[in-house]
Design a protein around this nucleic acid. Structure first.
Lengths: 351, 351
DNA sequence: CTGTTAGCGCGTTCAT
DNA sequence: ATGAACGCGCTAACAG
């Protein structure tokens, strides 16, 4: 029977001829309630179709069991089609649910600290996982000031104050990719990284550092043009690859972004550039994704399930006010598949 | 300065030497407050770093501006890599944010009505968007009984009681795909649909109906084996396609699921089956996705942004208790690209 | 074992 | 223009 107004604990109490405390007790299965009274209450609940107000409970307890996932408005449009983001998102969600939390998706209108802080402080959540705005310097400070538990999904700044994230070992990632190509006798290598306001994000800087380390080890001099900055969306990436291949003809490519990787493969398909016969390609990201491409792509695989779980653990520790135990990043792995081949001078080049 | 305890409206009142009512007034920019008092309060807020408790506000107002998005635990693992789901998810999120709501991601442990209802009633949200369990008969009844606003993301049952969803015109979708292939002289057509417990979901039933309509119109007799049920995950799909092509050699394929489509294209790539020379392929889903495949895929494109926005509108109407205005489904469109070709007997078949 | 009382943080009367 | 008092739904401390 439809009620005009949702029944409250008081209605139940009245119906069962007890007090609200007693009802509360049976609801929380707390202190011994006499079975008969208990039954009376349960009957009343059943009769009224009573559902305890979650809102009131959150209000009372101060715990919502909600984790806010904060993303910039502009990001969300593109990010959902990004395999790396998806994998991370999925892993975060699963871990959160496993721990009894739900994920509240929050978007900030613009990608600046003020906008982020504005939406964060206006949400009900026990803590926040932040896919950061371009620069998060002041955001971190504001969150600390307001005593709001948060973690970043990755390393966004080199500021030692920003220590709440779980990093992957990106230097190692860039290193093993570069080393493998050098082992295959490639020297004309290009590393395609995402372009953000003309620069690149810290994790790409790390990957580049690793790449440089490999080069040095093999005695190949690093040159600026080895790093190619291309935006991460499908069409822009396609055009960026096009532009690159008009003036340059590398024998091997490392690509730091999944969408750009797909765009590049499409470009090669469209222009008869054979992978790996004419060009070796290495991707970065979740391994399953690259396995679904043709050819199957050699890739540097990060354990996103692991790091996402760690990230949630970190946030929960902060929420519970426990001392934070820093975790060493897990090493990425090189998964060798069909997109990389040994380079030999004699190899025919298509005209 | 870090507080031991977060300041409340009372602390602000005390600090500003006014009462909580006044503070409340400046917070809500309500009735004229004398500028000087107003300033005093603002200063106090600033000094204390006071942030109004969202929780208390929700509790008071009864509005959380949160929409719950309910998904089965088992779904979420696979669903995130599904282009159709992603597009819908993205559209739902964007529309919700545009309307001032955030999306709370909720997963049910198992895909039955009881499990769904259990998590739904225990969440704070003004309404729910439900990616349904396999059978939702009792779920609908329970939600109605509890007077909880909800909508389903698509048509899940033929029960007329289930009227809170925005349907796409799937009959039309199946029809235009079939008609186009028949126009291209194909007769040996297979329609691959997702398999759910040996049967298929209502939207696939509709697409099949449309396909049958086209067949009839062209005088081609429908046969049961034209419908091929294959699970929607990558590896299972690949195997399913493999199994199909071992015993059958259609000239055209309609594929109802994006992941299965990718798996099929991979299978064709691996086995030298050329699209469209040897086989025409039509996909169903968001057009941008199929454009990122090689070859560019002809596909039936649904306007998910539109229907998702409508869905949120519908839910908001229910939340506000307004009468619900049913909407006619938008017609899907056939986007013709490079994966379909005219069939001629003379065409060479690879051995 | 159960009832009484108080209070979480805020908004909203009703006075003044 | 501002303050005092009350209540939202629930839980918890304290009585009895």
């Amino acid at each position: 029977m439809r009620q005009i107004k949702k029944p409250t604990i008081r209605d139940v109490a009245q119906e069962a001829k007890v007090t609200t405390s007693t009802v509360s007790r049976v609801l929380n299965e707390s202190t011994l309630v006499k079975p008969r009274t208990r039954q009376k209450v349960l009957d009343a609940i059943e009769r009224l179709g009573y559902i305890p107000s979650k809102t009131a409970r959150i209000f009372k307890s101060g715990k919502s069991y909600i984790l806010g996932l904060v993303i910039g408005q502009s990001h969300i449009s593109n990010i959902m089609f990004n395999a790396g983001f998806q994998a991370q998102f999925k892993a975060l969600t699963e871990k959160a649910h496993k721990e009894g939390y739900n994920i509240l998706l929050i978007t900030a209108a613009t990608a600046d600290s003020e906008s982020y802080f504005e939406v964060i402080k206006n949400q009900v959540a026990d803590g926040f996982i932040i896919f950061s705005p371009s620069q998060n310097d002041t955001l971190t400070a504001m969150l600390e000031e307001a005593d709001i538990p948060y973690v970043y999904n990755m390393k966004y700044s080199d500021n030692p104050q920003d220590r709440y994230y779980v990093s992957s070992d990106d230097v190692e990632g860039g290193y093993i990719a570069g080393k493998y190509l050098l082992d295959l006798n490639h020297k004309h290598i290009r590393f395609v990284v995402g372009s953000v306001k003309g620069g690149y994000l810290p994790f790409n800087a790390d990957r580049i550092r690793g790449f440089q380390k490999a080069l040095k080890q093999y005695g190949v001099p690093f040159q600026e043009e080895m790093i190619v900055k291309i935006p991460g969306q499908m069409d822009e990436s396609y055009n960026g690859i096009h532009k690159l291949f008009q003036t340059d003809r590398p024998t091997a490519l490392m690509i730091s972004n999944e969408i750009t990787t797909v765009a590049a493969l499409n470009y090669f398909f469209d222009h008869g550039i054979r992978v790996p016969q004419d060009l070796s390609v290495i991707g970065f990201g979740p391994s399953e994704f690259f396995r679904s491409l043709r050819p199957n792509l050699t890739n540097v695989s990060y354990d996103l399930a692991w790091s996402s779980a760690k990230l949630v653990d970190l946030l929960l520790q902060r929420i519970e006010g426990k001392p934070v135990t820093p975790e060493m990043p897990k090493k990425p792995e090189l998964v060798i598949r069909d997109s990389t081949a040994r380079y030999s001078e004699a190899a025919p080049k298509p005209s």
